[in-house]
């Protein structure tokens, strides 16, 4: 049997692609946090750094991420369908001991993340959601050159209650997905033991909480008027 049709092989592919996205989420959060001013020039300077990378690196990075997301979604759906069939008839009394809301709803929190991903790209990458604040169309001076006003676009977006709400809701889904996913990664890769596994469950939830707080800090501080454009 092929690795890609085996039970554990597909699970390992889910784990590796999921964890690669977690690593991306770490870098992305660190980059976004430049909006709070630790980088000279703020998020506009950060965005300019990224876009001045050699084109092949940018394209390669985007293709790699696209591949991760595609593999993760493909096997996520395939395994979920198979697993729903594993117990065709449910018990009259449901009494789960260890499964959690997060572990039972990975496909739904994942689907929400997939929809959010599409919205997020349309909003800040392709900039088609609110064209009047699109950064590519509003250049501002930075260190003697004109650069896209990413700060203006982000602040303009998050002043809107519904936009902030969508982002906050998506981060709740991210928290749930990762509170199960991070520890699951170590178990799937075979890196957890009887001693580390219960600790990894707690640590994974803690890291997921860190992602949630870190990411929602941006829309929240903007909507509350603390962070201004």
């Amino acid at each position: 049997m092929q690795f890609t049709s085996s039970s554990i092989g597909r699970k390992i592919l889910m784990a590796i692609t999921g964890q690669a996205m977690v690593l991306f989420a770490v870098v992305h959060l660190l980059g976004n946090s430049s909006i709070f001013g630790w980088l000279n020039g703020g998020i506009n300077a950060y965005a300019e750094h990224l876009h001045s990378l050699p084109l092949p690196i940018i394209i390669g990075f985007r293709l790699a991420l696209l591949a991760m997301v595609s593999v993760h979604i493909w096997f996520g759906i395939q395994l979920t369908i198979e697993n729903r069939g594993g117990r065709p008839q449910q018990y009259a009394v449901k009494s789960t001991q260890k499964a959690t809301f997060a572990s039972e709803n990975m496909i739904w929190t994942g689907s929400l993340l997939g929809l959010f991903l599409a919205y997020h790209l349309a909003h800040f990458t392709f900039q088609v959601i609110s064209p009047d604040t699109a950064a590519l169309k509003h250049l501002v001076p930075l260190h003697n050159e004109m650069v896209p006003n990413v700060l203006g676009m982000v602040v303009g977006g998050f002043k809107n209650f519904f936009v902030s709400l969508i982002y906050t809701g998506a981060m709740v889904a991210l928290f749930l997905h990762l509170s199960h996913g991070i520890q699951s990664f170590f178990q799937t890769m075979g890196w957890s033991t009887d001693k580390s596994q219960p600790i990894l469950v707690k640590l994974g939830t803690l890291v997921a909480l860190g992602f949630f707080l870190g990411y929602v800090a941006i829309p929240l501080t903007i909507f509350a008027g603390i962070l201004k454009g």
Binding site: I8, T96, S184, T188, D194
Partner: peptide
């Protein structure tokens, strides 16, 4: 049989206290 999603319900059900570390070992 279905595939594992690490709910760990198996360990809770097992009358012999088999630990999910053996699933991790099998994955390895």
């Amino acid at each position: 049989f279905g595939n594992c999603t690490n709910h760990y319900e198996c360990m809770a059900a097992c009358p012999k206290g088999i630990n999910v570390k053996f699933i991790a070992r099998m994955n390895r």
